[in-house]
Structure formats: C-alpha cells, structure tokens
C-alpha cells in the first residue's frame, strides 16, 4: 500500500509518553485498515476461512469480529454453500 509505506521505524524511546500515545494511533490505523481489507476480501469473493487464514486467526474469530461490522450489502458466502 503506497499511502502507508513505513519510512523508518524509529526506536526512539526518549519520550515514552508520546511514544505510547503514538502506538494507540497505530492501533486505530490497523483497525481501520483491517475492516477495509476484510470488506475488500469479501467483495472479491473470498470466504471467511480465506480471510481468517490470511489474518492468522480462526474462522470463528474472524467471523465474530467482522460479520456485523461490514457493509451488509456485500454478499457473503456461507461455509457450505
């Protein structure tokens, strides 16, 4: 992804307060991107199992976290369909 190229990971621990706050921004970005990618995956026809495999979690975990949050107009595949 072009917009989120990691330029240089500064291991700057001189101001841990600012550093910790920055980590929380990073989590926010990760959450945003995760939902965006899950929706894109479902739109492209990937199953929950494929998504879970790519995320490195169980199918149940991926489904539980995202099934309600995604855009409901995306036709999602049922496991045994």
């Amino acid at each position: 992804m072009e917009s989120s190229q990691i330029a240089a990971v500064a291991a700057d621990t001189s101001d841990p307060r600012a550093g910790l706050r920055a980590v929380s921004s990073l989590r926010l970005l990760a959450d945003t991107l995760e939902l965006l990618q899950v929706e894109a995956a479902l739109r492209s026809g990937m199953s929950w199992q494929d998504i879970a495999d790519a995320l490195g979690v169980t199918r149940q975990a991926a489904h539980k976290k995202h099934s309600k949050r995604i855009d409901p107009t995306i036709p999602t595949l049922r496991r045994n369909a």
Binding site: S3, S4, Q5, I6, A7, A8, V9, A10, D12, A18, G19, R21, A22, V23, S24, S25, L26, L28, L29, T32, L33, L36
Partner: peptide, 13 residues
C-alpha cells in the same frame, strides 16, 4: 503526527 513520531509515514484512508 503521532504516527510520524514513530517514524511511520501514513495517512488514514
């Protein structure tokens, strides 16, 4: 700006 302070150049979608 907080991400930049970690050395990560990123913008939110």
């Amino acid at each position: 700006a907080q991400l930049a302070s970690l050395g990560i150049e990123a913008s939110f979608p």
